[in-house]
């Protein structure tokens, strides 16, 4: 018997190592239990290996994709670049819209703060600051919108000018820096009166007819006096920046920095009617 087993020991071993697992399988297959200690050991042993392999494969794949396999990367980069440019343009447009919205909101607030005036909002569509001609700003409102010659044009900052030439759907505004523009003003601090006249170029204007005896210092704010028949009183005109008082003469001279930068204006309001009682001169002047 032993001799037989010894002779066929390899077959016996093979049969034994095959039959035992089969028996275990058949015995437990219908009633699978919880994980055994061996199962848990294998899980514990393989987890770090899996993590390591995971890390290694991820590293290799990332290196491959980032530094070696760059097929289509240029095309993708071009697409993304184009998309970035489009988004930038869109963003710039949105920023512009927001800025415009803020300006219009301020203009609306300005108009509402002066209930005695009826204002028509307008957009600047052109500027002509020819040194050989007039200093004009073109707006997109005209006679069909109720705009008339000589009507005052203002911004949230203050006075821009007055309507000069009128079309059905547009109008030219003679800005306060034009040589032909003269606005009756008053020093807000001292109530001294004078005229602000343009010098023919965007930028500082000069103060005329300020009596030598009047109280005028640099930094004084000037507002419209309402006595020129065009502008209602109280609108900001500019700031006195330089005062020249000579040794003789009736008047003193000064330089005025306009409250409105005519080169940067985009939206304006035309004061088409002054509804407050006693404002008849401006209303009359607004007639073409």
């Amino acid at each position: 018997m032993f001799a037989l087993l010894k002779r066929y020991r390899e077959v016996v071993v093979v049969v034994v190592v095959a039959v035992i697992p089969l028996g275990i399988f058949l015995a437990h297959a219908r009633h699978p239990g919880d994980r055994t200690a061996l199962d848990r050991f294998v899980l514990t042993a393989t987890s770090p290996i899996e993590k390591g392999v995971d890390w290694a494969i991820t590293g290799v794949m990332e290196t491959w994709q980032r530094y070696v396999w760059l097929r289509g990367t240029e095309r993708r980069a071009r697409e993304l670049s184009r998309e970035v440019n489009e988004l930038r343009a869109e963003n710039a447009a949105l920023v512009q819209l927001r800025a415009e919205n803020e300006r219009l909101s301020r203009l609306l607030a300005f108009a509402r703060s002066r209930p005695e005036h009826r204002a028509v909002g307008a957009r600047v569509i052109g500027t002509r600051m020819d040194p050989k001609g007039l200093q004009l700003v073109t707006i997109d409102r005209g006679s069909d919108d109720g705009v008339r010659r000589m009507m005052p044009v203002v911004t949230t900052g203050g006075v821009l000018g007055r309507i000069h030439t009128l079309g059905a759907h547009s109008a030219d505004v003679l800005v306060l820096s034009d040589r032909n523009s003269s606005i009756a003003a008053r020093v807000e601090r001292s109530r001294a009166r004078a005229n602000v006249r343009g010098l023919g170029a965007p930028g500082p204007c000069k103060l005329e007819y300020a009596l030598r005896s009047d109280d005028l210092i640099e930094g004084d704010e000037l507002v419209t006096s309402g006595t020129d028949g065009v502008f209602p009183h109280g609108l900001p005109v500019g700031q006195v920046t330089r005062v020249k008082r000579g040794g003789h003469g009736l008047y003193q001279a000064a330089e005025v920095l306009p409250a409105v930068d005519v080169n940067r204006v985009e939206e304006v309001a035309v004061l088409v009617a002054i509804e407050a009682p006693g404002a008849a001169p401006a209303a009359k002047a607004a007639e073409p």
């Binding site: 093979v14 095959a18 697992p21 399988f25 297959a29 994980r35 055994t36 061996l38």
Partner: peptide, 17 residues
């Protein structure tokens, strides 16, 4: 068997086969 999570003995038997 332990890593596959199946019934014990199945893959051991098949490995021997």
């Amino acid at each position: 068997d332990a890593s596959a999570g199946g019934p014990g003995g199945l893959l051991a038997f098949l490995s021997v086969l």
